[in-house]
Design a protein around this nucleic acid. Structure first.
Lengths: 149, 149
DNA sequence: TTATTAATTTATAATTGTTACAAATAGTGT
DNA sequence: ACACTATTTGTAACAATTATAAATTAATAA
């Protein structure tokens, strides 16, 4: 699906859930959809400060919360490091470089069995799960080997 | 394996890695091993303030970092909420209640295939992975149903 | 045991991501 | 155009964590 389609769908979702479409929201969504870097709130703030010199950081946070509540955006939390935000398209997991922080998406079929298993074992009602794989990206591995010389 | 054994092993690990065993470190480790609640740094700080009225919060954080670096402890990070610390015994995953925050351990065999798969697909060198399942615990479900009446 | 030395603790200040708040602004329906 | 409510903005507050420097202490060897 194209980015324009995603944006259109997202705006439709907002409309049907009764969330006003402001220029700031439009821009934040657009940036999120086009961005491949899983940006932080601050990334977004900085990226849009040319277009919206007066926009407040609070606006970015507010709207990311709204988008999350409506289900358009997922928040990836990392301790006291800044959260990263991911426009929800299809289900995927994240491969994270421990060296440079890069996040790469990958698809992996059917981990629903884990949810079922966990539910059975713990007695919880299961809603969702989160899987992340940590390692070193090819670029950083190259860098490391250079350092070793 | 018994808790006393875990503590002994942990102290041995510290000794062999050249980390000094201070009373504070001993107490923090002991508390971590006995605790079932995956405590925050503040939980630990509060739990030990009777025994160590002068201990600083920084000490707790410092030592949790040391333990993490030596591999005795895992840090579970959750956005701007406080990190929780988990004494490393055998591998397990966490089932987290979105209602009350309770964390329950469960075992699930072989997710190494995911690591292999991710490595193959992304080209990363894989070190580890993190899986968490989110839902509602039985107690909260009971509470919710009561509320609904 | 004691003296030495480097690691550790402590107290406090600073930092950072995020949220709360109140006032100003801008859409929306009448 | 008017009134009403959602939204934005700017700022202050907050909480978890870390940095810093001075005081203390554990491990080691004489």
């Amino acid at each position: 699906m194209s980015d324009e389609m995603h944006l259109k769908d997202a705006l439709d979702t907002l409309k049907t859930t009764g969330v006003r479409i402001t220029p700031q929201r439009h821009a934040i969504l657009e940036y999120l959809i086009n961005s491949m870097i899983h940006p932080t709130a601050d990334d977004i703030y900085k990226a849009l400060e040319d277009k919206f010199p007066n926009m407040s950081v609070a606006t970015v946070y507010n709207n990311l919360r709204v988008f999350r509540e409506v289900g358009l955006v997922k928040e990836l939390t990392y301790g006291d490091a800044a959260s990263r935000f991911d426009f929800v398209t299809n289900d995927h997991y994240h491969m994270i470089c421990e060296c440079c922080g890069k996040i790469v998406d990958f698809h992996y079929p059917g981990l629903n069995e884990v949810e079922q298993f966990a539910s059975h074992v713990t007695g919880f009602q299961v809603n969702s799960h989160r899987l992340e794989v940590y390692g070193t990206c090819p670029e950083c591995m190259a860098g490391e080997s250079k350092k070793a010389l």
